[in-house]
Nucleic acid binder design. Structure first.
Lengths: 339, 339
DNA sequence: CTGTTAGCGCCTTCAA
DNA sequence: TTGAAGGCGCTAACAG
């Protein structure tokens, strides 16, 4: 009578089918060819009757695998993250895993909190869109033998499978486009660089390229995402200082591009006619904003999908060497750089 | 030697601390006052030493609670969903739950798949942003005694806790605004209504209000989100048929508003000067598109947070009566309705 | 082909 | 204040 209250267990099914637990287990695990048709029938019937579904927890406990994957995502309100998530999610479905989603709001403390949480479930692998971890979280991640893969961003001095954008290719594509369009005063605008390799790689490539064109004025600035005032000042100054030149702004990511657009609005400057604008990350509204905003479109969904594939091949033990998979960006040319 | 390979277990800690498993368990479960300082010290040391973390699966198995919440979300690429997710996620963190995220891509089949999956883990509660379930999934959901709450959308004939928008208030706010602004030809545009109560409630309220204003021409149409051609035709026809009138479109949700904006672009019609536009759901880019697009802003994050609170009170057994919590929308007036 | 048994890691009586 | 033993639901030998 024990399991009368809760959900049916394998024992209940066994009892109902008038057999032992083993046969039920066999039935559930694809060893149906070992069962006599009669028994199989009885089992099927009982399972349906009781609406029985095996408890994954118990299964996981026994087999040592939970089919759970942890995803630590830096900022879930970022469209980039969502598409990555979406790709991962699709891959999970294809491969039979389930996703535990953890959003860190770009806070290191939460990153560590969730890392612990995921360890404790325990998940079979972790996908991390890192904010940047400090020693503690880092060493935790390092110690554990859990398969893991980094998405988009690396962690300094921490060798790990990695899937993300080919920042060099992307930045080159964008910068060359601006040069070709005759812009001769360029501002590379980023959120605070921190240790975030993505931002640094983009900036470095930008600088390297620009160095070959002495006639072009290049500037670089960092600005927190939500400091509108500072952004206004930055843009206003750049604009004034380079009056007479053909100016353009390059934005290091989609969230920043949005803020830049807002700022330009406040300053009464129009992208296109007054100043060029090109941002990393595609925006769904890019074509609707004024004359349109040129962007670098990442194959974000694929990056996510690919990340999960990589994790799985680690779990299966297929993967051997360190993986650093980089995808190419596509330039979406719109009015903001061709006016 | 058995657990040498894998992660440390409670037995390993017990051995290391030279005590029994029970004491470790007590230590972990806040019954530390029952332990002698000396023993407590040894335990603490061993735990840190081994980097031990209790296995939630085993815990769950034993205690019959997993602290897992399932979220079934209709379309994760929809900004609305994301904010809901974000709110739920924050609440989870506050309440000590972890979220299993399932994205159904608006497909009923996947909805059922995931419903099964979640049951099998088993989660302690399910939050559903339903696409619309058929008999099978519905009965599954009904049979189970699992706490559950619906977000945004109801399921027909299925009494269930519910958190969402006060559609009547929101629609009234919007419609009245259009009337006040002197629009006298209104088109209510929706994705196919299906059985989705949200869309129907909005349309019904719209119709009821409009009925009181015989001088206003009102039309209503349904259009699949990704049929640009049909949308173009719809809008073009409406525009031509009501030439001379002050026209406005009301869009039933944010995803559709985006498509409408694209369509108007293709038709060379400008929202604001040529035709009014007002959409449910706030859009981050609403102010940047032309003269701006007026929207109805939902307290989306709160809706999510509130949904999780509701689930938790069900789990705790606190909640008794059926809950139908409705939040009010806020009208964000922009150029598209005030030009 | 089928059933019995012994755990997976943990919590919880119960007894010391 | 501490420990031993049993069992949560399931799987995997090992017997028959």
């Amino acid at each position: 009578m024990k399991s009368q209250a809760g959900r049916p267990t394998i024992s209940d099914v066994a009892k109902a089918a008038n057999t032992g637990k083993t046969s039920i287990s066999r039935y559930l695990n694809g060893e149906q060819h070992l069962l006599s048709p009669a028994l199989r029938e009885r089992i099927e019937h009982s399972i349906r009757q009781l609406d029985y579904r095996p408890n994954q927890m118990a299964r996981g406990l026994k087999r040592g695998r939970t089919r759970l994957i942890g995803l630590i995502i830096a900022d879930i309100t970022n469209p980039y993250s969502i598409e990555v998530l979406s790709g991962i999610e699709a891959a999970c479905r294809d491969k039979g895993f389930t996703l535990l989603v953890c959003n860190t709001h770009n806070e290191v403390a939460q990153e560590e909190h969730y890392l612990n949480l995921l360890h404790s479930y325990p998940v079979e692998g972790i996908i991390v869109n890192a904010v940047g971890m400090r020693e503690e979280g880092l060493s935790r991640l390092q110690q554990s033998t859990l398969p893991r893969v980094l998405v988009d961003r690396k962690i300094a001095d921490f060798p790990c499978d990695m899937v993300g954008l080919d920042n060099q290719q992307a930045t080159t594509l964008a910068t060359q486009h601006l040069i070709d369009q005759g812009f001769n005063a360029l501002l590379f605008l980023s959120e605070p660089l921190g240790k975030i390799n993505t931002r640094r790689e983009r900036l470095d490539t930008f600088n390297t390229l620009i160095a070959r064109h002495p006639q072009i004025v290049a500037a670089q600035a960092e600005c927190p995402l939500h400091d509108g005032q500072q952004l206004d000042n930055l843009l206003q100054n750049f604009y004034s200082e380079n009056a007479g030149k053909r100016q353009a702004i390059m934005s290091v990511n989609g969230a920043l591009t949005l803020q830049i657009a807002r700022s330009l609005r406040r300053l009464n400057l129009q992208w296109g006619p007054d100043i060029g604008l090109l941002g990393f990350d595609e925006l769904e509204w890019a074509e609707l904003a004024g004359v349109g905003i040129s962007t670098l479109k990442q194959p974000t969904w694929q990056i996510g999908y690919s990340a999960l594939e990589q994790i799985v091949s680690r779990i299966e033990g297929t993967a051997t060497t360190l993986c650093d998979r980089r995808f190419s960006a596509e330039l979406m040319v719109r009015g903001s750089t061709t006016y």
